[in-house]
Design a protein around this nucleic acid. Structure first.
Lengths: 209, 209, 209, 209
DNA sequence: AATGAATGAGTCTTCATTCAT
DNA sequence: TATGAATGAAGACTCATTCAT
């Protein structure tokens, strides 16, 4: 997915040696911690380095600037998310569309809900970055997987699977984000999720059969 | 909607004299301009003041700090948005749910799409503010209007209009936001919008009749 | 005593008309209030004007700058103090030195202790002003009165009354100030005062008889 | 003596590395220089840093704000002063009170007179700080030493040495300060000092024998 | 390679003072 | 003469980034 991170945001070296790997992981974890406790505003390079137990200098060895840190963090999570979605899609090949859609909802929902606070923080962090390229790369990659899944659904023969795909993903991704924006309670969330599935089902029943 | 802006964000004085009014408006407009051209990162107090053609000091007479400026801006737009939604809801009283939902989509969509770049900028600006209270106040206000509209729909007798309302609004608001996130083209957007309507129709057809 | 207030500190107009008098008094009172509640740091021209119920503009009509305000305030108090000391001195003409010294202590002490917080505030305010001239003028004026008193004491024939005067006044004024610096309690203060008198008596008994 | 500097005034890091030590000393010296030449008003962070030959940033690594700088400076001088007084007191154990008092006068006087301009500047600087705690700690520490000295004087058996101590120290410290306030000339100062001693002697001769 | 002291450009913010109304 | 909106110089402070050790 890296897909050309705006040059300045590329990590400096890809850690291969075990020591480096540990360092980088510590930095990532520290970034998350600071992000959670202080938000983007409180995310200072010194603060992260301190929390990670390394010196600023060391940190700059791996990340050329502060943004690259957050960028890499988002990249990491988006990559994981993409992989999970792809896995789901692979698994759902040849199944009915409705089921496929529901599975997509479940997977995406779960991924975003596991660490809700982190999800919130990342959603916010994106606003301050030049992440258009990153998000676009993610969208493209995932769209391919989902479109594919819908195309090959057992009961689906829409001439334009892509259109259906755009609708479903927009609605799903958007709804999830809105849930975080509104700060709904756990029960409401569950209800919402099942209604969303119902909605998708209802829609698919009227389309491309 | 003001709903207790976190004290530090409250404007300092409400301009009463005509000279003040002009000044404040200039500041607002300048804020928008800067937000559009430089984003939240480039939004400096000096920058805004300069663009507004006033001195920093003047700006600080009306806004106790930079954030309050953006806060006020969001408040303004959300208030307008709420009013438009309320107007639509009032107009749709007693009409079929499907029509009501479509009208809501049209209104919300239009409001957000008129100045797309500004919408993007505001979406982003929110991430750096303590706007939870503001957003919550907006949600509450608008939810009341929409729930009411759905309750009184001619063909609607759902025991739980509120649940339907949450679903529809989440889906609609979320989808719109996602459209901006993805940077879809105008055509795709139009297609998406009509599909979204179809989806809502399909869903409502299966519910509460 | 004005004795050439450093040009920039001279009040702009001496209020003669009754309206002006009221305004100036209100400003003085406001200055004291602000000084007491916020200290020198919190003493802003806007703050004082507001508290005085006049506009900044009006205030600047009477005081050309912030310092002149504090300067005038100190001048006022020093003048009153000088008058009280002079009165005491006049009254003590021809009395024994010891009694004269004690009377001086009582007068000075009383004057500084009546509004202790204000005294503290003024002591501090002086530090930030170009008040050397003012203080010098005060010292000269008062020294004249006290020296005179000591010279004419019934039992005093020191060849150098001036030297005695310097010692006594230095000790008295200094001690009073130190009392405020240390923040002694009321009882300690009383004890201290009577001991100070005893000390002066003891000293005078060994001198110039 | 640190005695809990009001948290905001505590130095940020205590320099351990030699480079740091040099830096901090340079900053201190620069602070003194600026204080002497421009007074508290002219003491700006940039000014001090410039004079110290370091960047503002460096200065802020050691002192969280401007005040802490002056605070630390006062602390330094008060500590030295306390040490000198203590040394004198230790040395005067078992000697006659009068001698002890004179020694105290000499020591305190010398300490304050060595760099008169600096003394003046520090006296003034205190007015703008939250130094009550600092001064109180100093007073307590020094009072202990002097009281002790008086208690153990060979010819002293006052039931309340503490009261005598308060009087003497108040008179001495206060007089010294007053000398600076009045701007007396060197000759007057010498005369004053010897008279002050005479006064103390006279007083002690009437007490607690 | 790691460290962390030093840098200084860049921001926010205040407040004495002016001046058009 | 009074008002208070506007001014803008001045100053405090932060923090990403560098580089000597």
């Amino acid at each position: 997915m890296p897909a050309q991170p705006p040059k300045a945001l590329k990590p400096r070296k890809t850690p291969s040696q075990p020591r480096s790997r540990v360092t980088v992981d510590a930095i990532f974890e520290a970034t998350i911690q600071v992000l959670l406790s202080q938000g983007m505003v409180g995310l200072t390079s010194t603060g992260v380095a301190e929390r990670a137990g390394v010196s600023v200098g060391t940190m700059y060895q791996y990340f050329p600037n502060k943004q690259s840190l957050v960028y890499a963090l988002n990249e990491r999570f988006l990559t994981t998310l993409a992989e999970r979605v792809e896995a789901t899609c692979a698994q759902m090949h040849g199944r009915p569309v409705a089921e496929a859609a529901e599975a997509l909802i479940d997977t995406y929902w779960a991924a975003k809900t596991e660490r809700p606070e982190l999800t919130r923080a990342l959603y916010r962090s994106v606003a301050e970055l030049e992440t258009d390229a990153l998000l676009h790369a993610f969208a493209t990659r995932v769209d391919k997987a989902t479109t594919d899944m819908f195309c090959r659904a057992s009961d689906f023969s829409s001439p334009d699977a892509s259109e259906v795909n755009v609708l479903l993903t927009t609605v799903i991704y958007g709804s999830v984000r809105n849930v975080f924006e509104r700060g709904l309670g756990p029960e409401e969330i569950l209800g919402l999720k099942s209604e969303l599935k119902a909605m998708c089902r209802a829609y698919l029943a009227t389309v491309g059969k």
